[in-house]
Each structure stands twice: as C-alpha cells, then as structure tokens.
Computed example of a mutant assay.
Amino acid sequence: MLRKLLKHEVKATGRTFLPLYGALLILTIFTKVAMTIGAPDFFSDNVTTGPIAEIILGIAFTLYFVLVVALCVMTLVVIIQRFYKNLFTDEGYLMFTLPVKTWEMVFSKLVVGLMWSVVCGLMLAISGFILSLGSFSMLEVSQAISAGYADFYAQFGMSLNVILFELFLGMLVGGVASILMIYVSIAIGQLFNQHRIIAAFGAYIVITIVMQIIASVIMVVVPLANLEAYMEGIEAMNAIQWLINGTTICNVILCVLFYFGTQYIMQKHLNLE
C-alpha cells in the first residue's frame, strides 16, 4: 500500500512541478542564447551590449529570477498543502478510511516532499551550469577539481570526499528535519477547533525559538568544555567535522521527535474539519 501512496503522491505533485521544471529549462536556454548573441562577454569585466540586447537580457534575467523564486516557493507550498489538505481537511475522511497505516501516510508525504526538494536543487544547479557554459572549459574544471583535491589532502591529510559526504548527509538529514518540523506544527495546529493555520504557524515559531535557545546553549557550553583540547592544537578541520556531524546527529534526534510526535497526534488526537 505504501508503494501506491508514493505513486499517487508523485503523480499528484508532478503535475505541478514538471511544467515548472520544463519552463525553467526553456527560459535558461533562452537566457543563455540571449547572453551568447547579445553579450558574449557577460561574465567578464568588458561587457559591450547594445540597447536592444540589454533590454532582452534584462527581461530574460528578470523572468529567470522570478521563476527560480517561484519554484522554490512552490516546493515549500506544495509540501505544506499536500500534507494539510490531504490529511486534516475533508479529504482526510477519505484518507483515513483507506487500509493504510498512519506512518505510511506521513512517510509517503515525507519521501515525496524530500524528493522534490532535492530535484529542485538539482534543477537549479543544472540551470546555473548551463548559464555558465562558455566562461570556462571542462578541462579547466577538471584541472581545478584535481588541484583542489590534492591541496585539501596535502593540508588536512584526508580525502575531500569524506567532508563532501558528511556535508551531503547533513543537508539531507536537515531537509528531512525541516519537513517533519512543518508536519508536526500542522499536526499541533489541528488540535485547535478554530484558526488552525494560525495555530500551526504559532507552533512552528515556538518550536523554532526553542531550537534556537537549545542551539545557543550548546554552542556556549561545548566550546568551553573542550577549550583545553582546542588549546592543545586540534586541527580546524576536526572542529568542522565535529560541527557537521554533531549537527547531523541533532537533526536525526529532531527527526525522530517530530516524526513520532506527528504520528502520535494523528493516531490519538485526530481532529478533522
């Protein structure tokens, strides 16, 4: 049943995102062509464009910026809308009559929301890469990457891949925690009979404030506790790794709390409109 939920969720959300991604690619190519024709040296200090080319480039970049912002906003809106509307409004009556467990409903929303967040990031990266084509050669990129890996290993005595993997894992777990934080806030908001959206927003703010207070305390206490170790010469990269991995562990804990908190409220205190 989980597979069917995931398939349905991907289809439902894909109708919104796929046209946006297609529009982003088309607009990116159009902008790149306009840059190539009207401003071949756009990324250099010597930009020579005519008034018509400047107008076309200005319109293209304005539309591009608007679309990028819209894509990011829509990703967040869809994540919120799909969870709230499908589970805590009239549609929830249908969802909870299906032979589906609560954790499957939450998990399917989470996986698809995270998937579109990752796809959004990849599409923006691809778009930026297309726009930057011509300002460098692939040989230069390859040489720069190889030199960067060699310099990193020479300075820190470890592979850059280790840090990149830890960063990727940390960002992935952080993304999951962010989505689950939205879910648990919505779940708390539905406990109220009126003004549920405002209550959910308030819950989100309260959770954010509590997390910031805890993070501030940890940042103050931990360095003091390890001051002697730092004075003995721990390398900066070790400290950075500790920060990255420590943040990832904290986000894992938050994921567990938010996930089971959401599931508990939906199982024990469900209050549909």
Rank of each mutant, 00 (worst) to 15 (best):
residue 103 W to I: 14
residue 103 W to M: 09
residue 105 M to R: 14
residue 108 S to L: 12
residue 109 K to C: 03
residue 111 V to N: 00
residue 112 V to M: 10
residue 112 V to G: 06
residue 115 M to Y: 11
residue 115 M to D: 01
residue 115 M to R: 02
residue 116 W to F: 15
residue 116 W to M: 11
residue 117 S to G: 12
residue 118 V to G: 01
residue 119 V to W: 09
residue 120 C to T: 15
residue 120 C to I: 14
residue 122 L to D: 00
residue 125 A to Q: 09
residue 125 A to H: 11
residue 126 I to G: 03
residue 126 I to H: 04
residue 126 I to F: 13
residue 127 S to F: 12
residue 127 S to W: 11
residue 127 S to R: 11
residue 128 G to N: 10
residue 131 L to R: 03
residue 132 S to E: 06
residue 132 S to R: 15
residue 134 G to H: 08
residue 134 G to L: 08
residue 134 G to S: 07
residue 135 S to Q: 03
residue 135 S to D: 09
residue 136 F to H: 13
residue 136 F to S: 13
residue 139 L to P: 00
residue 142 S to D: 12
residue 142 S to T: 13
residue 143 Q to E: 14
residue 144 A to E: 05
residue 144 A to W: 08
residue 144 A to S: 13
residue 145 I to H: 05
residue 147 A to K: 11
residue 148 G to L: 06
residue 149 Y to L: 03
residue 154 A to K: 13
residue 154 A to E: 13
residue 157 G to H: 06
residue 160 L to N: 06
residue 161 N to P: 01
residue 161 N to T: 12
residue 163 I to A: 07
residue 163 I to E: 06
residue 164 L to D: 06
residue 165 F to D: 00
residue 166 E to N: 05
residue 166 E to M: 12
residue 167 L to T: 06
residue 168 F to I: 15
residue 169 L to P: 07
residue 170 G to I: 09
residue 170 G to E: 03
residue 170 G to W: 07
residue 171 M to S: 07
residue 171 M to W: 11
residue 174 G to I: 10
residue 175 G to Y: 08
residue 175 G to A: 04
residue 175 G to H: 04
residue 176 V to R: 07
residue 176 V to Q: 02
residue 177 A to F: 10
residue 177 A to G: 04
residue 179 I to P: 14
residue 180 L to P: 11
residue 180 L to I: 10
residue 182 I to N: 08
residue 183 Y to K: 10
residue 184 V to I: 15
residue 184 V to D: 07
residue 186 I to W: 04
residue 188 I to K: 07
residue 191 L to K: 13
residue 191 L to W: 06
residue 191 L to Y: 05
residue 192 F to E: 01
residue 192 F to N: 02
residue 193 N to Y: 12
residue 193 N to S: 14
residue 193 N to D: 13
residue 193 N to M: 06
residue 196 R to L: 02
residue 196 R to M: 04
residue 196 R to P: 05
residue 196 R to V: 03
residue 196 R to F: 04
residue 197 I to D: 03
residue 197 I to Y: 10
residue 198 I to P: 06
residue 198 I to K: 13
residue 198 I to C: 01
residue 199 A to S: 12
residue 199 A to M: 10
residue 200 A to Q: 02
residue 202 G to I: 10
residue 203 A to K: 07
residue 206 V to T: 05
residue 207 I to R: 07
residue 208 T to Y: 08
residue 208 T to S: 07
residue 209 I to M: 07
residue 210 V to T: 09
residue 210 V to N: 04
residue 211 M to F: 14
residue 212 Q to C: 01
residue 213 I to F: 11
residue 215 A to Y: 05
residue 216 S to P: 04
residue 217 V to S: 00
residue 218 I to T: 05
residue 219 M to V: 04
residue 219 M to R: 10
residue 220 V to I: 11
residue 220 V to M: 05
residue 220 V to G: 00
residue 221 V to N: 01
residue 222 V to R: 00
residue 222 V to F: 08
residue 222 V to S: 00
residue 223 P to M: 03
residue 223 P to D: 00
residue 223 P to Q: 01
residue 224 L to W: 11
residue 227 L to I: 15
residue 227 L to A: 15
residue 231 M to A: 12
residue 232 E to H: 14
residue 233 G to N: 08
